[in-house]
Every structure is written in C-alpha cells, then in structure tokens.
Nucleic acid binder design. Structure first.
Lengths: 344, 344
DNA sequence: ATGAAAGCGCTAACAG
DNA sequence: CTGTTAGCGCTTTCAT
C-alpha cells in the first residue's frame, strides 16, 4: 500500500512533464493533448500500473467525489432501498458514498455530519427523521449541497424527496370505504414524527370525505412504530368500539400488531377485521394473511434524491439562490389478503 | 462551503505559528505544547469555528480515517446488521465507512474496490460472496488491510469472520432428531455458493450421526436462496418421500417456501411437517407459524470484523507476515412454533 | 516550547 | 500542444 507510483513517475516514463501526463490521464482535458502523447502516457500508466491518488486530487480540486448519506437505522428495511437508489444514481456519476447510522441520536447526527464535512464530501443526503432542527439551517447557511429524503424541510429552503403520505392514506381509506366499511379505526404513529402526524391528520380528513364514522375514539396513537405498540393501540380501539370492522395502520409493523390484537380478541383478519399497513416492507406478503398495504417507492426515492443532489453539486454554490423543491413521490396500493368486505 | 478557515487563520488569531497550532489542535501532540498556548489556540479555533480539513491531513499523513465496505446487496437483510456492527466498531475509533453495493457483479466489485483504494481507504471489508477470485490475491499482495466477512478466504492468508455453518446445521438436525423425527429432508441452497455446499454436506454428516434415514432422495437443491425455489424443492421432497416428517432448510426464505409447499399438499406446519430455517431474518418470528431457525450473530460479525481490521491497520504493513486468522462465530438455535414432535 | 521550511500528489493558470 | 510555476491545507522534521 506504499510504494506508490505517482504522476511524475508516469510522466518520466512517458518522457513528458507531469502536467501533460495529468491532462492526458484526465478524460476531461484529454482533448487538449496530442493523440500520440495521450497514447504514450496511457501506456506508461498501464505499464507502471499507476493508480491516481484521489485524495491529492481532491485537495487540489476541492472536490472529493464522495457524498455523505446519513440514515437513522440501516436495519429498518425502509432505508436500504433508499441507500441503494442513491448509490446507483451517484455511483453512476462516479461518486462514492460515505454512510452513517445515527440510531436516532441527535448528537451522533451532529458529529457524523461534522465528520463527513471534514472529509470534504461534495454533498449530503440526510434521511434522519428529526423535525426542524437547527442542523439543517446551519448546513443551508454553510451552503452545503443538501438533500433531505423521506423527510420534510420545515421552513428552510432545502431540496427534499418524500413519499406523498396524504395520497397514501387516502388510497388506504378509499380502499377500505369501497369495501363497505363504515366504522374504521386508525392506529396512528407517534406524534413526534412528522410521518405519524401527517398520516393521522389525513386519515381524519379522508374519513370525513368518505363519510365514515368520525369519532376521536377511533384514533389511537402508538408510542412507537413497532409491533407491540401497535397491538396495544389496536386493543384499545377494539375495546372502545367493538363495532369497528377495519383499521388503517400508519405503518406495517403497527398493522402486524393489529393482527396480534385481533387474534387476542378472537377476531379473524380479514373476516372480522380488515387491516391495512403502510410501506410494503419486505416479507409482509408472506404474512398470514398477506398484508394489504401502501407501497412507497423507496428505491426511486433514493434515485430522485441522487439526481437532485447531482444537480445541486453541479450548480455554482455562490450564484443564485437554489430552487429547493420538495418532490413528493406517489405511493400505490397493494391489495392482498388482509382486507375484505365487512361481515354483514 | 468555501470561505474556509484554515489552520493558518487560527494560528494568526492565536498569535502563534501554524505548526504550533497544529500541535495544539491534535490531541496526540498536544502534550508538547505549553498549556497556555493550547488554550489560546483552542479558543481561537472555537472563535473562528475552525474545521480541520481531513483531506489535506490525509494527504500529509497517508491515513484518511476511512474504510471501505463492500456488500453484494444491502437489501438482503443479512447485510445491514453486519454493516452496522462494522460501523459501530470503526466509527468508535474515528473511522468513516464508504459503502458499496455490487449486485453480485464481479466487474462492479473490481471497479468499486479500485475506487475505494483510489480514495485511500485505510482498510477494506469485503462481504461479497464470490469464491476464490484473484481480486483478493491482488489485494493481499498489495498489502491492503483486508478482512473478509461472511465468506472464506480459500487459500490466501486473509483475515475472515464467518458464521460456523457446520455448527448451525448440527444444531438444527439435533433439535429435529431430539423431537423424534427420523425421516428428515434437506432443502439445500445452490451448490455454487459455499454456504449452500457446506450446509448440505454437514446435513448429511449430522443425519448419519443422529441415525436418521439417510437417502439421497431426502436432499433437494434449490436453485436460489428464495421462496419459490424453496417451495419447488420441498414439493419434490414431499412427493418423493411422503413419509417425511421434518425438513431442515438451508435458509429462512427456503423454509418459507416449505411452508407454501406444505400448505399446497394439505400438510400443516408443524403438526404434519416440522420446518427449520437458517439466519433468523427479521420478521420470521411473525410468520404463521413462527419459524424455528438458526440465529447467526451478524451484528457481532460486523463488530469482530471491525476489531480485526483495526488491528490490521494498526500493524506496520511491511513488518512480519500477518496472522490471518479465520474467526468462526457460533450460531444459536431459536425454537419457535414451526417444529414439533412427529404425529404418531 | 515554538518557528521555519519542506512537501504529501495533484491540477490549474500562465507562458511559450 | 507542452512545460513552468504555484500552491490546495496540513503535518513534520529540524533548528532554535
């Protein structure tokens, strides 16, 4: 890893000056060098098996061709597709991705971003959920090329790529309503997360629009996007409104909690209780019954985020103010076996 | 992102020379500077909100404090825990991780490794499955600090961290045997993958040791580690040996395929057919029935790989030949609801 | 304990 | 088209 072959070595071998070798090696500037020289340099580089030193280049050019990507939890199956999408897009453009996990810890997020910036990443993609924190403000102010993913920028002008949660919940409610359900509950996600709030709010609006039974007792917030909280919330719903025939869960794990709650109260899904999820996590199609859920195009989210970031990075940072659009990706409904018309 | 505060700015602000500022800022060399100066420099750095330039530092020190990690497919739930384990370990030591996906493409792997090396990563962790390829040889020869994970180094002296597949299959067979099964099938993984081969071979040995019915007809290879191939393989088994009461699958997805096959032949799991998986993928505990499976400590695998890599990176690369040990992590059996004594 | 000077490997003006 | 000359921001001898 040490006896480096440097550009000067190649230049010497080819009998030219280092700068000429540099130009010949770089596809962008190659046109400016005579064809024979290019050939000679390339040949010399091959012979010496020259490997360019990206760090030195980065120091000189102020571009490292790396981007940072921060996720709260890589083990949450939402995130790998996003990362892959980003990687596919940016990797194609020659970038490498520095990935970091925060475990939803704001402090870790700060240090991680600081470290990424110290490493001179050319851009940053944040998929961490914390609401309007000043970290984003700071990054915007420092003119870091930044794209938020799966998350909004509250008032800061920042590009963001998110799923259209309103459309998704609307899809779920419309499906449930079209099956003939009238008493429909909602197991909401935690109110501290924007996803939880938006979905709950939209559920109520959609319930009104579809003339469902609207009752605050038909909404129960789960403390966390997990199976157990989902079970608890659904039990509360079931006990409060035994006439409830369907429940729209804010997330697949919560929906699986509803399965457990239903079983516990001797109700069969979907005959006695229809359940919808959200996200279309891997393997929910293999559950018993297979879960009807909202499919969010996470992979594409990564793609689009990558495209946005590329554009931001291309743009001269001190020219006009950036456009900062929020791109909302439309989810789709995947009907499986967990929803059916109500019994009577 | 441009109006950088450099070390010289800090030095000027503190009224010292850049080199002194450097020493004061670096915890390693701080001891050599007078306490008051240290204080003055730190204060100046804070005032100017100085951010060190890791790239410049890397160019000088030949250490970038980044490591590369390459996985075949981040969406395969095995890998995120490994990545997290690595990240936790290496992140704690101040390293950032450059992650790459190969999609099992040897060509992509090569270019990715080349790119990582160009970025001067201090070490490399490869979780890609390809058998003895020359890439590894080359890396070893180039003295790159390298750890293989979830995969063996065939003859090259390379550190590797893997799960002990023999122990795992033994666990599964012992469990099944202890329940009283005698006619036990094996849905094997693809023979092209070492995992598939090793598990199949071990199954046979364990079957003999536990005095099960040994019959080539009780082993069926699935073309790929997926549900559908698993279903097909299990159907073949079921049709060949209708007296089979249990099946050890080489992987959880194959096991889920066995569920489907059993259902298709009107057999109930576990009453009519016990099924074991391998890996303890997320959510297999939520399947119906919950899957009895072999739990591989993937997170710990990442940890151990991180520790090994740290050690390799610490070591002077041109001193003695490296130790190159293969660490085998012991899996455990998680008994759930998919296994039971045979009917009679 | 601190300063001076050199240079990591590369690219980008500027000349010729 | 090619060579010369300067550094990018930092660390590290070597003096003092």
């Amino acid at each position: 890893m040490n006896d480096r072959v440097t550009l000067r070595d190649v230049a010497r071998e080819a009998g030219v000056h280092a700068s000429t070798a540099s130009r010949a090696l770089n596809p962008e500037t190659r046109g400016v060098v005579s064809e024979t020289t290019v050939h000679r340099v390339l040949e010399a580089a091959r012979r010496l098996s020259y490997r360019p030193h990206a760090v030195a280049r980065g120091l000189r050019t102020n571009r490292t061709m790396t981007v940072g990507m921060v996720v709260p939890d890589l083990e949450n199956p939402l995130f790998p597709p996003i990362v892959r999408g980003v990687e596919a897009e940016l990797g194609g453009a020659g970038y490498s991705i520095l990935v970091g996990n925060t475990d939803n810890d704001a402090e870790r997020l700060r240090t991680m971003v600081a470290s990424l910036l110290a490493h001179q990443v050319d851009g940053l993609i944040l998929a961490t959920a914390a609401a309007h924190d000043d970290l984003v403000d700071e990054l915007v102010e420092r003119r870091v090329a930044l794209v938020l993913v799966n998350r909004f920028a509250e008032d800061v002008p920042t590009s963001a790529v998110v799923g259209d949660d309103r459309a998704g919940i609307e899809l779920a409610v419309a499906h449930i309503a079209s099956l003939g359900h009238r008493v429909v509950g909602h197991v909401a996600g935690p109110g501290v997360l924007s996803t939880g709030r938006v979905r709950a709010k939209t559920f109520l609006e959609a319930a009104i629009r579809h003339r469902l039974d609207v009752d605050p007792g038909l909404v129960e917030e789960a403390g966390w996007f997990q199976v157990e909280p989902g079970r608890h919330a659904c039990l509360a719903l079931l006990d409060r409104r035994p006439d409830m025939t369907a429940v729209v869960a804010a997330n697949d794990l919560l929906a699986l909690g509803c399965y457990a709650a239903a079983a516990q109260r001797g109700r069969h899904v979907p005959q006695d209780l229809s359940v919808t999820g959200y996200n279309d996590m891997p393997f929910v199609d293999l559950m018993e019954p297979a879960l009807t859920t909202i499919c969010v195009p996470y992979r594409e989210m990564g793609h689009v985020a990558g495209v946005s970031l590329l554009e931001l990075m291309r743009r001269n940072p001190d020219l006009p103010s950036p456009p900062a659009e929020t791109i909302r990706l439309t989810p789709s409904l995947t009907v499986r076996a967990s929803t059916a018309p109500p019994r009577s």
